[in-house]
């Protein structure tokens, strides 16, 4: 361990690669394999047919046995590469198999059948993407509904969070007023209190509001995030006081100062909070799990979890739906990677 640490701290100028550089790249290369590998494996697997998923050892790419249509047979027949008795190989379609003997037919000469020992044939495989893994559960199960619910929760909750958090942050950063310290303490004190702690009473509050099994039960409780207030306030504190005073001299109402001066100037912090909020809401699990028990109001995460309980054997659907759940996040990440990373590094939150 110390050896690696030492490698990683040695600083060398540009130019010839020092051996510590090689060690660094080795660590990073291993990281690429360990971090990307599983996701890549998931995506590749999600395109495999149920039969291909059962193979062991598994093939890397989604492969499936080639099938051909042969005149005179209503069903497509599986294609094999057969080693003939004279040593030559031919591609034959299998009509049926009885015991150790397979009855085969040459697709080019559909009239005659050939009897072949079962161990003399190898399946002919081709790469094939089982798109049905995606289309079937979306059609057969409630996944489109889950997707819709997740989108609705994420968008509405994020919008509410942005508005009420920014208003609170504005009050706490621009004004001096009685009770400000108390309000700040309330925000900071609850920064790390997760909903886990108040699961039961929030459930009561939501029940009393008649919201159980409604998407609003998921949207409302988490809307006033202390993290958001804190993050926005810290940023708004850096807006020069002069600008606020200039706006007051310009006869702007307090609402206008908030909406036309402070909000646009806080755009970077608002963007960070937007991304955080989307991430929190899209990935939210425990609370929706507790409060959404009917399948028609469940979100993608809950649906997916329920799915893995019900469909243990149907990995092909489960994997495909996992990819569907992951994709929006992956897209957001691809576009905003640098931005999210610096946002988190600078706020120390997520």
């Amino acid at each position: 361990m110390t050896g690696i640490l030492r490698l990683l701290t040695a600083r060398r100028g540009a130019g010839r690669l020092h051996w510590t550089d090689w060690a660094t790249y080795a660590y990073l290369g291993l990281a690429v394999l360990l971090m990307f590998g599983p996701v890549l494996w998931l995506v590749l697997s999600s395109f495999k047919t149920p039969a291909a998923l059962l193979e062991f050892p598994p093939s890397f790419l989604p492969m499936t046995q080639k099938e051909v249509r042969v005149e005179g047979y209503p069903q497509p027949l599986p294609l094999f590469s057969v080693t003939m008795e004279d040593g030559s190989t031919r591609e034959l379609a299998q009509v049926r198999r009885v015991g150790l003997i397979a009855q085969m037919v040459d697709p080019k000469a559909p009239g005659t059948t050939v009897r072949v020992a079962a161990d003399k044939r190898q399946p002919v495989r081709e790469m094939a993407f089982a798109v049905s893994n995606y289309t079937e559960p979306l059609a057969k199960y409630d996944f489109l509904r889950f997707l819709e619910n997740s989108l609705f929760v994420t968008l509405i909750a994020t919008a509410i969070t942005l508005v009420i958090n920014s208003m609170a942050a504005y009050a706490l950063s621009i004004y001096e007023f009685k009770g400000k310290t108390l309000a700040m303490l309330a925000v900071i004190g609850t920064l790390m209190i997760p909903i886990t702690i108040v699961l039961v009473p929030v459930y009561l509050v939501v029940t009393e509001m008649g919201l159980v099994n409604s998407l609003w039960a998921v949207i409302l409780p988490g809307a006033a995030t202390p993290t958001g207030v804190f993050l926005l306030r810290q940023y708004m504190l850096t807006i020069p006081r002069d600008l606020i005073e200039a706006a007051r001299m310009d006869k702007a109402s307090e609402w206008r100062i908030y909406a036309r001066i402070v909000m646009p100037l806080s755009a970077p912090a608002l963007a960070v909070l937007t991304i955080f909020s989307i991430m929190w809401r899209w990935n939210d699990f425990l609370w929706p799990l507790a409060v959404l028990t009917k399948s028609e109001v469940q979100t993608l995460q809950i649906g997916l979890n329920a799915f893995q309980g019900e469909l243990q054997t149907q990995w092909h659907y489960l994997l495909a739906m996992t990819v569907v759940t992951l994709t929006p996040v992956a897209i957001v990440f691809a576009f905003l990677q640098r931005f999210i990373a610096t946002g988190i590094a600078n706020t120390g939150m997520k």
């Binding site: 009420i164 009050a171 309330a186 009561l204 509050v205 202390p226």
Partner: peptide, 23 residues
Amino acid sequence: PYVFLLPNAVFFGLFVFLPIGIN
């Protein structure tokens, strides 16, 4: 400032402080 603080405070009270008490 109280006006701007109010919406967040309502949510906070309803879903954080009240529940802590009920708990």
